[in-house]
Design a protein around this nucleic acid. Structure first.
Lengths: 193, 193
DNA sequence: GCGTGCATGTAATATGTTACATGATTGA
DNA sequence: TCAATCATGTAACATATTACATGCACGC
């Protein structure tokens, strides 16, 4: 039951509908929590029934109506409580790394192809994070913003996300290249193995 | 159903029991997949019943008997198939980043304390990864090992894990320091807010 | 009238987590 | 004999994923 805290934290910077929140989870929140839209709709209903967020119908004329949510004082209290209990160690799940782990025992070609594809995606994500960071800090340069600007929370988690994707990119690329070179060497001098 | 592939990949470098595998998951495999011991016991039974691994009873006199597993040819084939289907994007779950995301709205002290604690844990993990990498490459220096040594898969994923923990450490530390400085500035000149 | 994006939901299934239980063996 | 490590399991419960369903509104 920790998705609730990710949702609460994400709702702190504005009023969002489930649909909007799903998009935000896809880009920014995915740095620290993963959730598919279905989970969000379910969780929003639960959080509202517990009084941690409050929803409000928004009538739209150009598109379907929606229900947007804001964090209540009780929701803030829940986040405060959450911050005082020891954080569980983070968890990662990466299919691509499972493949690399097994690469000595399976054909490398498929793994290399996936590494190269993911390297491109990671580079795109880094660029997206850079734009998000610029938007969050507005006119200020980074140093000034970090010292005096705000809100600082989303900026800091975005920095971490940017770093992670940058490292992903570098590792994907260098690993793909290494595996390609080893495959070539093996093809040239198979008697060495 | 992707835990199975992480288990298969982990079993490629030797025969392990569920208990041993749980320890390996705690240190090395956690770089790319998270699982608690219970999941492993369940998954090992399932994998054996499907013929992807084969177990063998080991009688021990100094401690309780155990059942160790090896990947069968069918298991290798399953990994090969797995490597050809597009990898799902990785997922992350980090309570601590949820807390930082919300830090503008809750007392920062608790978050700072947790960041500092986790920074120490991350530094310890980096040191552990360094020792693991040394062990894996044996006598060779890293460049030579990467070019000609092997098995290379576990080494590459360990490198990624090391990098991730190093970045965690740096971000935990710098974020804690930043929040401390901002808290101090806020205490000194509260009229500015 | 068809595809796309917006907006939300129910229900079935699969996975993951937690609590609890058992029992061997070693060394303090 | 008591705690610690080794070793595995069952069962209850909580979460996550997937498939499917619905309907508005816009522009082509």
């Amino acid at each position: 039951m920790a998705l609730r805290h990710a949702v609460l934290a994400a709702l702190l910077d504005g009023e969002y509908s489930g649909y909007q929140l799903a998009k935000i989870f896809d880009v920014a929140v995915s740095n620290f929590w993963h959730a598919v839209p279905q989970q969000l709709y379910t969780e929003l209903n639960r959080l509202e029934s517990e009084g941690l967020i409050s929803g409000k119908q928004v009538i739209q004329h150009d598109r379907p109506n929606k229900r947007v949510y804001t964090v209540t004082p009780a929701g803030i209290e829940e986040l405060e409580r959450f911050a005082t209990v020891p954080a569980k160690p983070g968890i990662i799940r990466e299919d691509l790394l499972v493949m690399v782990q097994a690469v000595d025992h399976i054909p490398a070609a498929a793994v290399i192809a996936q590494l190269e594809e993911r390297a491109l995606a990671a580079a795109a994500k880094v660029a997206l994070f850079d734009r998000t960071l610029e938007r969050l800090r507005g006119d200020l340069d980074e140093e000034t913003f970090l010292r005096e600007g705000g809100p600082i929370g989303p900026y800091l988690t975005c920095m971490r996300g940017r770093r992670f994707e940058q490292e992903n990119h570098d590792w994907f690329r260098s690993t793909a290249q290494l595996l390609r070179e080893r495959a070539a060497a093996h093809a040239e001098e198979p008697e060495r193995s």
